[in-house]
Structure formats: C-alpha cells, structure tokens
Amino acid sequence: RVIAMPSVRKYAREKGVDIRLVQGTGKNGRVLKEDIDAWLA
C-alpha cells in the first residue's frame, strides 16, 4: 500500500498517474505532490 495524503491521491488521479509507480521521497517513503510533478516531468 502506498503512503500518501488523500489530496495527493486526488492530484495523481486528476493527472492520470498510477500512484503505485511513483517513488515517494517523503518520510517513510510517503508520496508527495512534488513526486507526482517530478514523475510527470
């Protein structure tokens, strides 16, 4: 299970990103909004 705040999950869904593919850089591997942006870049 991916650790991410609900707002980040929603952001990823809106961008069409599968959050399971994104490498989290936050505490304990948490996926941050910046990680979604970096994955899209």
Rank of each mutant, 00 (worst) to 15 (best):
I3N: 10
K27H: 10
R1Q: 14
A4E: 05
A4H: 06
V31N: 00
L21Q: 11
L32T: 14
G29I: 02
V22R: 01
E14W: 09
L32W: 05
E34H: 15
L21T: 06
A41D: 14
D18Q: 07
V8W: 02
R20D: 09
V22A: 03
L32Q: 10
I19V: 07
V22Q: 01
G16M: 09
E14T: 11
R1N: 14
I3D: 11
E34K: 15
G26K: 03
D18H: 05
A38T: 15
Q23N: 13
L21A: 12
W39L: 08
E14Y: 09
A12F: 01
A38V: 10
M5V: 10
A4G: 06
A4Q: 05
E14M: 15
V22G: 01
D37F: 03
D37P: 00
K27V: 14
K10L: 11
Y11K: 05
D37R: 05
L40M: 11
A12D: 01
I19F: 04
D35N: 07
K15M: 14
K27C: 09
L40K: 06
Q23F: 11
I19N: 00
E34L: 11
E14D: 14
K27G: 09
I3L: 05
D37Y: 04
V31G: 00
K27S: 11
A38H: 15
G26L: 02
A38I: 13
A38W: 10
L40R: 06
V22L: 09
Y11T: 06
G26A: 05
M5Q: 13
R20G: 09
V17T: 03
G29F: 06
K10F: 07
A12G: 03
V17A: 04
K27I: 09
G16Y: 07
D37K: 05
R30I: 12
V17I: 09
N28T: 06
S7M: 08
A38Q: 14
L40Q: 05
A41C: 11
G16R: 08
L32H: 08
Q23G: 09
G29H: 09
G16P: 01
G24V: 03
M5W: 12
A12R: 00
Y11G: 04
A38N: 15
V8L: 05
A38G: 09
V2P: 09
T25N: 07
I36F: 00
K33L: 10
D35F: 00
L21K: 13
R30F: 08
G24L: 02
G16V: 04
V17G: 01
A12T: 01
L32S: 10
A41Q: 15
R9G: 03
L32I: 12
N28H: 13
A4P: 05
G24I: 02
N28V: 06
D37T: 05
Y11L: 05
R13E: 11
K10D: 12
L40G: 05
S7F: 07
R9S: 06
K10Y: 09
A41V: 15
V8A: 05
P6T: 13
V8N: 03
K10H: 10
M5I: 09
A12Y: 01
V2Y: 03
D35K: 00
R30S: 11
K15E: 06
V8F: 01
A41Y: 11
I36Q: 00
A4K: 04
V17F: 02
R1H: 15
K33H: 12
A12P: 03
R13Y: 15
K10Q: 12
R30V: 09
E34W: 11
R30A: 14
K33T: 07
K10E: 14
I19Y: 04
N28W: 14
Q23E: 13
S7V: 08
V17Y: 01
Y11V: 07
G16L: 07
D37E: 06
A12H: 01
R20I: 08
M5S: 12
E34N: 09
R30L: 13
K15I: 07
N28K: 10
W39D: 02
R20L: 09
I3R: 10
N28G: 12
I36E: 00
G16F: 07
S7I: 09
M5K: 14
G29T: 04
S7H: 12
V17D: 00
L21H: 10
G24H: 03
A41K: 11
R13D: 14
D35W: 00
A12S: 06
D35Y: 00
V31D: 00
E34F: 09
E14L: 15
S7Y: 10
N28M: 11
W39K: 04
K33D: 04
R1P: 14
R20Y: 09
V2H: 08
E14Q: 12
K15A: 09
A41L: 13
G16T: 04
G24F: 02
P6G: 09
A4T: 08
I19K: 00
L32G: 06
P6K: 14
K15D: 01
W39N: 04
L21M: 13
V8Q: 02
G26Q: 02
V31E: 00
A12V: 01
G26M: 03
V8R: 01
S7Q: 10
D37L: 06
Y11Q: 05
R1T: 15
R9V: 12
E34G: 12
D37Q: 05
K27Y: 12
V22M: 06
L40Y: 07
E34D: 15
I36T: 00
N28F: 15
V31M: 04
Q23M: 13
I19L: 08
A38P: 01
